[in-house]
Design a protein around this nucleic acid. Structure first.
Lengths: 229, 229
DNA sequence: GGCAAGTAAATTGTATCCAATTGACGAAAA
DNA sequence: TTTTCGTCAATTGGATACAATTTACTTGCC
């Protein structure tokens, strides 16, 4: 996921994305270019580029001459995203049932153990891990295009969950993850897709809104003041 | 498709994208920031932003400190893209069979007539129109997220076709487009998906490479010197 | 007291400037 | 002749400076 490639832009991009997914930056929150830039010790140019990319990913929206805000997906938009996600993840399962790479199951099981370890804390970490399971699944298909799209919708779903979910209660999710692995191992496409459908449906099922603003600087100081050299 | 939204960045973005799709800018061709900027009468900053977005769309790749190039999808990458495209377009058909908007068929038929009109000229225009049929189809689902992804893969497919297709021979394509509309109208999911599968498969079937460089400035001068004010 | 207009502050949009990295060419040594 | 090292040109990476736009506040009028 984290595009470790080149430059500061990517670093800021990753940091901001992480902050959004982990709910440190809440939906609707403003992201002034110089405030963010100061926090990370880089110029507006860098922040700008990162924001452009985040907008492409649907995690941020920008209004002309107004600035960037953490996206606030509407319920309708949320539903559309889930629709696409279900479609893509079904394809992932279809492919994996046909061709799962060697170390695939090891990686998946390792990840599930990770999730189980973080089960207690109901916080941002478990949300992130739950998402990364699906991203890992997609990556195992070897289809990078597919993996990228899955990654994008999963990220947006995390954002949606942070808006509409009353509590994440990832316990059942982890359990379903295991079941999905099992079904794939048995090559049982239909069952795997059914569980996945239920899994996503359950995830999408939780509603209720809860926005609340906060101070930007305090939050960002957590996420890598170390970029300043 | 064309994000008519706000600024110069978008304009340059659209122009470059169009130039790539219409094969004016050929795969592998360099896109130096200042050359492009001069042509359009804008500064590097703008071009830079546009290039970042094009990279996100997979139409351009950038190498650190080397610059941007029109993407040259490998055969493997091409196959991955077609795999995703098939998956997404099947979903489009599934949705449209359930809920096609009022004016849907009119729009589709109008577009097909457009394609038939351009049938003679085997050039860039028919490639673009063929792609836009699928984008229109996706847009009619009302799912903007889905539409955006379809749009992206269709664009990349156009690029791929421009690399690997010996001739576009859009005649059969237009015919299949009509068949797809018909099948959807009858609510025959399976048949529509089958035709679509064949359609994409046929499109993907044509192979053979053909790259050839050219002068950047001469090309870009076609695409909107008018941005200079 | 409320509303409107004008002005000032804040923030983005864009351009230009400097530094850093890469690739190529050429010269010198093996 | 081949290989290697060093210098130079070209181009991007990043920062700062300036212009344009929007928002918010203040002031004056009704």
């Amino acid at each position: 996921m984290s595009e470790s490639k080149n430059t500061l832009t990517n670093a800021v991009h990753d940091l901001l994305r992480k902050a959004i997914i982990e709910q440190a930056l809440k939906p609707g929150m403003r992201l002034p270019e110089d405030t963010v830039g100061e926090q990370f010790g880089v110029s507006r140019t860098i922040v700008r580029h990162a924001l452009v990319r985040l907008e492409n990913e649907g995690l941020v929206i920008t209004r002309r001459n107004r600035g960037a805000f953490v996206a606030e997906p509407s319920r309708e938009e949320a539903q559309q995203i889930f629709e696409v996600r279900r479609c893509l993840e079904h394809e992932v399962i279809r492919i994996l049932c046909d061709r799962m790479p060697e170390s695939g199951y090891d990686q998946l099981n390792a990840h599930v153990r990770l999730e189980q370890g973080a089960k207690g804390k109901d916080g941002p970490v478990s949300i992130r891990l739950a998402g990364e399971f699906h991203v890992l699944l997609a990556a195992l298909t070897g289809n990078e295009v597919l993996a990228r799209y899955v990654s994008e919708v999963v990220l947006r779903c995390s954002l949606i969950m942070s808006m509409y979910a009353r509590s994440h209660s990832s316990d059942c999710a982890v359990d379903e993850h295991s079941q999905i692995i099992e079904a794939i191992r048995e090559g049982d496409k239909d069952r795997a897709m059914h569980i996945m459908g239920h899994h996503l449906g359950a995830v999408a099922g939780r509603a209720e809104l809860s926005p609340k603003p906060d101070s930007i600087s305090a939050i960002l100081s957590h996420y890598g003041k170390e970029l300043a050299q």
